[in-house]
């Protein structure tokens, strides 16, 4: 259920390397916890993020949550479709609901993050 092709943070973001860029989104568990997502505050292109740095906020009808960069890098794309259809994150958190891509990422930094099995055991323990 949790895809094996990417890494995860304790704060429920995922990151996946694709053509030298890091694609970032939130997990299925996170979108489920938030409920119907109504707004995503996207960062500006070119902004430099440190690993663990806050890069935006995601809101649902009843809640809001900060978004944290799983790895350091420069924002090279944002998912503009989320401006009008933030519910893409509810529908497809690992695909069309991606949030940003980062360039200039140190691939080795990903190995310090959780793999799918570790992430799943973490959310299972908490529940």
């Amino acid at each position: 259920m949790t895809p094996n092709d990417r890494r995860y943070t304790k704060t429920h973001e995922w990151v996946k390397l694709e053509d030298g860029k890091a694609v970032v989104g939130i997990t299925d568990h996170a979108q489920e916890a938030l409920g119907d997502i109504t707004f995503v505050d996207l960062p500006k292109l070119g902004r430099t993020l440190a690993a663990g740095g806050e890069f935006g906020v995601i809101e649902s009808v009843k809640a809001a949550s900060d978004l944290y960069a799983p790895v350091g890098g420069v924002v090279s794309a944002v998912n503009q479709a989320l401006n009008d259809t933030p519910e893409l994150i509810n529908r497809d958190p690992y695909g069309d609901g991606w949030i940003i891509t980062l360039s200039g990422v140190d691939a080795a930094a990903l190995t310090t993050l959780l793999d799918a099995a570790d992430y799943e055991s973490k959310i299972t323990v908490r529940n």
């Binding site: 704060t11 429920h12 939130i26 996170a30 916890a33 938030l34 409920g35 995601i58 649902s60 009843k62 809640a63 809001a64 949550s65 900060d66």
Partner: peptide, 9 residues
């Protein structure tokens, strides 16, 4: 009404 942070409760 509004939990402060649903992803990190």
């Amino acid at each position: 009404s509004c939990p402060p942070d649903a992803m990190h409760p």
